[in-house]
């Protein structure tokens, strides 16, 4: 009973994560981009907590709590503060227009399923879809990083990649060992501080967070 429930939770989580990745790619305004990013963190925390509950893995509750606080609340809030404080232009400014980005994204999802096909045939774990979805999410995060002009959108893409990796860990293996989870959480925190520092450096040096200005 709990195995089917677990499978359903993870499959639904995977679907939601993929949906949110597409939503992130299609946003035109910074504020709604941040909302979706925060939602991704919350979904991730919820899936983690549910997996923890159904698989009786207490370590995962810790991960879920950290995820909710860090990725669902703290990081989106800090990013929003930075955007307001630095008077960043509130539009996303994509380099490639959004419909074409969406088409590329769809192709990337198909590609991920293709690559992970041999695993799905082999795996006897119940969460076969998740590796494919997680890989697709990673690729979508990268797509976001390369098709956006601003430093902040690049960072959101980066953090979305981290989210998908975390989801891969939870979905495919019911969470990595606690040491790994804590290490990654710590790393995300420190990396965000460094990112924040660099926003100020970049703005002070180039008078804008637009990365085109950085090219010589």
């Amino acid at each position: 009973m709990s195995q089917t429930l677990l499978q359903q939770i993870i499959t639904m989580g995977a679907a939601l994560m993929l949906l949110i990745s597409f939503a992130l790619l299609s946003q035109k305004r910074m504020l709604s981009l941040l909302h979706w990013f925060a939602l991704q963190g919350v979904v991730l925390a919820a899936v983690t907590a549910l997996v923890a509950y159904t698989s009786d893995n207490t370590e995962l509750y810790v991960s879920a709590a950290i995820t909710l606080m860090l990725k669902g609340m703290l990081l989106p809030w800090v990013l929003w503060k930075i955007i307001r404080q630095m008077h960043v232009h509130r539009e996303v400014e994509p380099l490639v227009n959004i419909p074409i980005t969406m088409l590329i994204a769809a192709a990337l999802v198909v590609f991920s399923y293709q690559v992970t096909l041999p695993i799905e045939h082999l795996s006897h774990l119940i969460t076969r879809n998740t590796i494919a979805v997680a890989m697709a999410n990673v690729l979508l995060g990268m797509l976001m990083m390369i098709t956006r002009k601003k430093a902040i959108t690049q960072v959101i893409g980066f953090l979305a990649i981290e989210n998908s990796l975390f989801f891969a860990g939870v979905g495919a293996t019911y969470g990595m060992p606690l040491v790994a989870e804590l290490g990654v959480a710590f790393d995300v925190l420190i990396a965000s501080v460094v990112f924040g520092l660099f926003f100020y450096h970049i703005r002070d040096t180039f008078e804008s967070l637009d990365l085109n200005k950085m090219e010589k």
Partner: peptide
């Protein structure tokens, strides 16, 4: 390095 983490997670899988 996040790709390396994905690799590590897959290995753990």
């Amino acid at each position: 390095i996040s790709l390396a983490l994905f690799g590590t997670a897959t290995l753990f899988f």
